[in-house]
Design a protein around this nucleic acid. Structure first.
Lengths: 243, 243
DNA sequence: CTACATACCGACCGTCGGTCTGTAAGCGGG
DNA sequence: CCCGCTTACAGACCGACGGTCGGTATGTAG
C-alpha cells in the first residue's frame, strides 16, 4: 500500500458508507466471522488508522450493517403509523401487501438479505438484524392490534404476544424461501412460487386464528409477486445481469 | 504450570466432562465471546496440548455445551414419543405439564440455562441451543399435531408451521422470565409469579387458537410451580445456599 | 500565506486459537 | 519385574487478528 497514492480525503459520512459497502459485500460473500478487518481495509482501499478513525471496533461494522438492513422495516413501520384510513384489518393487510410488493420490487435488496442471512458464520448478524427489526415492528403491530381490539375488529388473548408471534413467523420463513429459490434455480419456478405461496397462506391462516378473524381475512397469498421475486432472486444468482 | 505436577491421567470421557464443566462455568460468568481457551485451561488445570487432545477447536466446546443444554429437550421428546395413552390433547398437556414440573424441580439447571441465555456475548450459544432444541422438538410436536388432526382432536392449517410457532413461543418467554426474576429478587414474588403465569396463560390461549381448540384446552397456567421456580432461581442468585 | 482540524498512514503490540515435538502415565503381556 | 505400546498431557512456538499510536498530509478558513 506504500506504492499507492494516499486515499483522497472524503466527507466522514461518505467514507463511512464506502467502508460499509465494502464490508457488506464481504459479509455476503464469506460471512461475518470469516471476514477480518484487514480484508475490509483492502476492499475499501483504506488504511488501518483510517478505518479506526471512523469505526471504534470491528463490531461497529456489524452495527452499521444491522442499521442498513432494518431500514426497510423502519420505513414500513412509519407507513403503518401514519396510515389512518380503514379499519385495523384493512391497515394490517395493506402493511402486509406493501411488504410483499416491496420485496418483489427490490430483488437486489432481497438477494442481499437472503445471502446475508443464509451464509454460514452470519449467525450473530442474523440475530442482531432480527432483534432490531422486531424491536421496531412489534410495538407498531401491537398498537395496531390494540386498535383493532378497541374497534371490535380483532379479538386476541394478548396483543403483545400476538404481535410477537406474527413477527416471529419470518424466522421460519427463511428456510422455505431458500427451498423455493433452490427449486426456481433448478428450473422449477412454478413449484418454487407455489411452495412459497403455500407457506404464506398457512401463515395467513395462523394470523386469522391469532387475531380471532374468519378464515381468509389476512391476505398473504400472492403467487404472482412470489414468482416475480424468485425470478429476480435466481437471475441475480445465476447470470449477474444486474450487479 | 511447570511448578505443578503433571495432571493425572483421566478416562477420555471424564476429562472431556471436566473441561466442559470448567468451560460452562466460565460462559455463565462471562459469556462465550469473552472467554478464551487459555481461561478454560486455567480453570480446568490442564495444558493446551491436553485440551486439544480432547477438543478439535474452541468451537467444539460450544457444541459440547449445546449438547448438554438440549439434553432435557431430548428426554422430553422421548417421553412424548413413547407415550401412547390418551388423545393428542391429553398427551400435549402431559408434555407441557411435565416440562413445567421439570423446570420447577430442577432450579439448578434452570438457573444455568437462564444465566447462559441472558449473559451478553452468548448470542451464538443461545442461537445454537435454540436451533438444536427446535430441531428435536418440532418434528415430535408436528407428529403429535398430525395425530391429533387424524383423530379429530386438532384442526390446523399446517402442522409443521403450527409446531414451529408453538416452539418459538419460548423465545419471547425468556424476557418475561427475566422480568419475573427481577420482581422476585426485589421481594415481589407474587407479582413475579403472576406475570409469568399471565404470559403462560396467553401462550396457552395462542396454542388453543393454533390447534383449533376451545379456549382453556391447552393448560399452561400453574402459579404454584412458577412460584417454586422463581424462589429457587432467585435464592440461588442471592445467597448461594446451593452451589 | 499560515494555522488548524482532522482524515489518513502503517509499524507495532499483545492476545488469541491452534500446531507440533516431546514426555510420561498406564495397561497388558512375557 | 521389565518392556512395548498407546495415548493423555505438556508447553514452546507460530501466524493471524483486532486494535494502538505517533506521524503525515489534506483541505478549509482567515
Amino acid at each position: 500500500m506504500s506504492d499507492e497514492p494516499r486515499a483522497r480525503r472524503m466527507a466522514p459520512d461518505d467514507r463511512r458508507e464506502a467502508i460499509l459497502d465494502a464490508a457488506q459485500a464481504l459479509f455476503m460473500e464469506r460471512g461475518w466471522e470469516a471476514v477480518t478487518v484487514a480484508d475490509v481495509l483492502k476492499a475499501a482501499a483504506i488504511s488501518k488508522g483510517g478505518f479506526y478513525h471512523h469505526f471504534t471496533a470491528k463490531d461497529d461494522l456489524l452495527a452499521g450493517i444491522v442499521t442498513r438492513m432494518t431500514g426497510q422495516a423502519l420505513a414500513a413501520a412509519e407507513v403503518v403509523r401514519a396510515e389512518t384510513r380503514g379499519d385495523a384489518l384493512a391497515r394490517l393487510n395493506a402493511f402486509l401487501a406493501g411488504s410483499i410488493r416491496w420485496k418483489a420490487d427490490n430483488v437486489r435488496e432481497m438477494r442481499l438479505f437472503a445471502e446475508l442471512l443464509t451464509r454460514p458464520g452470519n449467525d450473530l448478524l442474523h440475530r442482531r438484524i432480527f432483534d432490531a427489526t422486531a424491536g421496531v415492528v412489534v410495538p407498531v403491530l401491537e398498537r395496531l392490534v390494540d386498535e383493532g381490539v378497541a374497534e371490535g375488529t380483532f379479538n386476541v388473548a394478548d396483543a403483545r404476544l400476538t404481535a410477537e408471534v406474527i413477527v416471529r413467523l419470518a424466522e421460519g420463513r427463511q428456510e422455505v424461501l431458500s427451498q423455493a429459490m433452490t427449486l426456481a434455480a433448478a428450473g422449477k419456478l412454478d413449484r418454487g412460487a407455489e411452495a412459497l405461496d403455500a407457506r404464506m397462506r398457512a401463515e395467513g391462516a395462523v394470523c386469522d386464528r391469532l387475531l380471532g378473524l374468519p378464515p381468509g381475512s389476512v391476505l398473504l397469498s400472492n403467487t404472482k409477486d412470489y414468482r416475480r421475486m424468485l425470478v429476480g432472486l435466481t437471475a441475480a444468482t445465476g447470470q449477474g445481469t444486474n450487479p
